[in-house]
């Protein structure tokens, strides 16, 4: 008697999840710029770091993950750039950086998304974006510990986190919570950056010491940054960029 074959109906997971690793397979390192607090300079650091690495001849991708308040495109100056379609979505090169953001599609319209909708939009973005060969993918995360950060941890397993804070006890309280969370899930932490330093303080260094993470140094408050937006050449000539270069040396 021959062997009896039984037929089964089985359920399948979200198909987008199966392709994300494939989309990221030629990305060598993923740096995620995070902070519990808003307004501490994540987007500026993420964009400037991307420009610095590009200038050094590295291939760089920049993903603006802030669906509610994207701003990397303003810093970079992306006028007229649009992704192209080729069996997926290919981010346009803006000043040599492969730059992806929902801003291409929604412009200045408000995008009122709730938690699961953010998660869906992020999963879709990761599933369709073809980064190709990239040395560094820099991800600019929104403030907080919501969907975007949790999904980065879940879906981009090779992520390394760059924590940004200002030397204010208000920012540090929230950043401490985020640091605890990242340590709890054993996410690799590149270190903590002290942004917008005006006066000498040891607050951030002490924070780093307390959590056993690397203090990557200060970025001095730069009053001239606003006039450098959409002008990468000018941005790279600032004191701010000089400080980001020093930090880059410590994490590469």
């Amino acid at each position: 008697m021959g062997r009896v074959h039984k037929n089964f109906k089985v359920r399948a997971p979200d198909p987008r999840l199966a392709i994300i690793d494939e989309r990221l397979k030629d990305v060598k390192r993923i740096f995620v710029v995070v902070s519990g607090k808003g307004g501490v300079g994540k987007s500026l650091i993420a964009t400037t770091l991307s420009l610095i690495l590009t200038k050094r001849g590295r291939s760089v991708g920049l993903l603006d993950l802030d669906f509610h308040g994207p701003s990397c495109h303003i810093i970079l100056g992306t006028k007229g750039a649009m992704p192209t379609e080729e069996k997926g979505i290919i981010p346009p090169e803006v000043h040599g950086i492969k730059f992806m953001s929902v801003v291409y599609y929604v412009g200045d319209e408000p995008l009122p998304l709730r938690g699961t909708e953010i998660s869906d939009a992020f999963t879709e973005l990761l599933a369709i974006t073809k980064w190709g060969r990239v040395d560094y993918l820099i991800v600019d995360a929104p403030p907080g510990m919501g969907e975007e950060v949790l999904d980065v941890i879940r879906l981009m397993e090779r992520s390394e986190f760059l924590i940004v804070t200002t030397p204010s006890s208000l920012a540090l309280k929230t950043v401490s919570r985020l640091t605890r969370l990242l340590l709890e899930v054993r996410a690799p932490i590149l270190g903590v950056v002290e942004n917008m330093r005006i006066t000498e303080t040891k607050l951030v260094e002490e924070h780093a010491k307390k959590f056993g993470i690397k203090y990557l140094g200060p970025i001095l408050f730069d009053y001239n940054l606003e006039e450098c937006f959409s002008n990468p050449k000018k941005l790279l000539g600032t004191k701010f960029a000089r400080n980001v270069r020093d930090i880059a040396k410590k994490i590469l």
Binding site: P15, I19, E22, K87, G88, I128, K130
Partner: peptide, 16 residues
């Protein structure tokens, strides 16, 4: 051609 990306995702899922 974005459909191609979706088809790839579906096929990977079924095979997995």
């Amino acid at each position: 051609m974005h459909e191609w990306a979706l088809a790839e995702a579906v096929i990977s899922t079924i095979l997995n």
